[in-house]
């Protein structure tokens, strides 16, 4: 059936759960492109036959053209949706993506990601005097400081104001949220919620 492969791509997109990127389905895309190419060639042939004087081919051309349009729309949707996912991931994971996600991206997507990174960095540097990390607080924080508990012996940790804190298992500290956020992500600290 015409355009069935393209539809498969869309179904694959909708199957993928949010927050993960399925592998770039190059095989399927090439098949769709091949199909489009043959459709186009056939249309060309029919059109040139019509110009030569043959009649009764128009309905065929129209069907093929509609299929072409559909294929195109599906392909673009597929690519665009993937870009959107990658963009979201930039805000979630930061400028360096985990290996398994990178592995699922095609070459063009990687170069797009790098350019997006660069643009974002330039923009964030231009805010205020010394720049502002927009990805830091995705939701407005409730307090500037949070209470954290050390889960492992981490060693010394220098805060922004130059103090040195020893992060040792089972000590509890009251620290600047922005400073300990990455330590919480690493699993060194635990946020104590009251």
């Amino acid at each position: 059936m015409l355009a069935s492969k393209a539809f498969e791509l869309i179904k694959e997109l909708s199957r993928g759960n949010s927050g993960s990127l399925s592998p770039y389905n190059e095989d399927c895309i090439r098949q769709v492109l091949d199909e489009m190419k043959s459709l186009y060639e056939q249309n060309q042939k029919d059109v040139s036959d019509t110009v030569a004087g043959e009649t009764g081919l128009f309905s065929g051309v129209q069907v093929r053209h509609a299929a072409l349009e559909r294929n195109k729309r599906c392909l673009l949707t597929y690519l665009y949706k993937r870009l959107q996912i990658i963009q979201e991931m930039r805000w979630e994971f930061g400028s360096v993506l985990p290996m398994d996600i990178r592995y699922n991206m095609c070459e063009q997507e990687i170069s797009w990601f790098n350019r997006y990174n660069k643009m974002l960095a330039v923009y964030m540097r231009s805010i205020g005097d010394s720049g502002l990390d927009l990805t830091q607080d995705m939701q407005p924080p409730k307090s500037l400081y949070i209470e954290v508990r050390c889960l492992k012996d981490h060693g010394e940790f220098e805060t922004q104001d130059g103090n040195i804190i020893v992060l040792k298992r089972n000590n509890q500290h009251f620290l600047l949220r922005s400073e300990c956020e990455h330590l919480i992500r690493q699993g060194v600290l635990e946020h104590v919620t009251n």
Binding site: S143, Y145, E147, I165, N170, N171, Q172, H173, F174, L175
Partner: peptide, 16 residues
């Protein structure tokens, strides 16, 4: 104390 310090944003470290 922790409650008081959190109100006034006094930085602290608790060690048992």
């Amino acid at each position: 104390l922790q409650y008081l310090f959190q109100c006034d944003q006094v930085l602290y470290t608790v060690v048992p």
